[in-house]
């Protein structure tokens, strides 16, 4: 893996919501051609980090750097203009609007000269259908309302959209949570491809089997703080799993489940005779 220059960087960033400290003193760097996985429990502050990186929230303190230069995003549009595209955990879709209109929302393709400049529906429909087909979803009609799609299909629209518009940084907040095996592996392939194309990728997931194969570095979060960052060579798949689930909890759960699975005491009437 040959990572390039640092593309996006957070230095000592904190963010408060009233008295809630959502994240505290987070420092992170993502290089071109590198995948950073954010790991942590629910409410650990992962989404808050990516919302700061995509211009939704401003940091309460600390600094954001793009290509080594301090930058202040006024809005998500600002971040998008700098090539940072995001799949939000809530997907940022408008249910009443069509797939194609959602796909290009805020970034509509136009043709013609003013005042005849207009939304290029043909291009929008074609590109949306093509991008969805690439991810493995056949949409029936790009004019279909997003509200009529299944949860996984909707997630795929958001991913395809971010991949289409992410020029430098691709951020994915639990993009595979609702996906089937085929679509999830497609998303992982996308992440691998984005890395090969030299994008900086930030990937949040609760699924270790998704995180480990594509991640180069893992940043562990707990209650708004960084618990350290690890390179892939430094830890194993199992260790990542332990970090993500809080190993003790997983072991306790296994014991509990074993308790349920134990057969009731006494001989079972239908138990087969052990073969001799």
């Amino acid at each position: 893996m040959n990572a390039g220059d640092v593309v996006i960087e957070m230095r000592d960033v904190s963010r408060n919501f009233g008295s809630v400290r959502a994240i505290e003193n987070i420092t992170l760097q993502v290089r071109a051609g590198e995948v950073l996985c954010l790991l942590g429990d629910n409410g650990a502050g992962k989404s808050t980090i990516i919302k700061i990186l995509s211009g939704v929230f401003a940091p309460s303190s600390g600094e954001l750097l793009l290509d080594g230069r301090p930058i202040h995003f006024q809005s998500p549009r600002d971040a998008l203009d700098n090539g940072i595209a995001t799949v939000y955990q809530d997907l940022a879709m408008v249910p009443l609007m069509s797939i194609a209109r959602n796909f290009f929302m805020g970034r509509e393709p136009v043709k013609g000269a003013w005042p005849w400049r207009h939304f290029d529906h043909g291009l929008a429909n074609r590109v949306a259908a093509e991008e969805m087909a690439k991810i493995g979803i056949r949409i029936r009609d790009p004019g279909q309302a997003v509200g009529t799609l299944s949860g996984g299909e909707r997630q795929c629209v958001a991913i395809a959209r971010a991949v289409h518009f992410g020029a430098r940084v691709l951020i994915l907040d639990e993009p595979t949570s609702a996906l089937g095996v085929k679509q999830a592996s497609m998303v992982l392939r996308y992440i691998a491809k984005a890395r090969a194309d030299g994008l900086a990728v930030i990937f949040i997931t609760h699924n270790v089997n998704h995180a480990y194969p594509v991640g180069d570095r893992f940043l562990l979060m707990n209650r708004g703080r960084s618990m350290g960052s690890f390179r892939k060579g430094e830890i194993t798949n199992a260790e990542v799993a332990t970090m993500m689930a809080g190993g003790e909890e997983l072991r306790a759960l296994e014991e509990e489940l074993a308790e349920f699975a134990r057969p009731p005491a006494g001989p079972r009437p239908d138990a087969a005779e052990p073969p001799l």
Binding site: S54, R77, Y88, M105, G106, H118
Partner: peptide
């Protein structure tokens, strides 16, 4: 409404203001 960028923005901000803002609609 139907054929311009601004029209798409009108539907977007009315449909889900937050989603619209997050994908760059002013």
């Amino acid at each position: 409404l139907l054929n311009t960028r601004f029209g798409n923005w009108i539907f977007a901000v009315g449909g889900d203001e937050n989603a619209a803002r997050n994908v760059g609609v002013p």
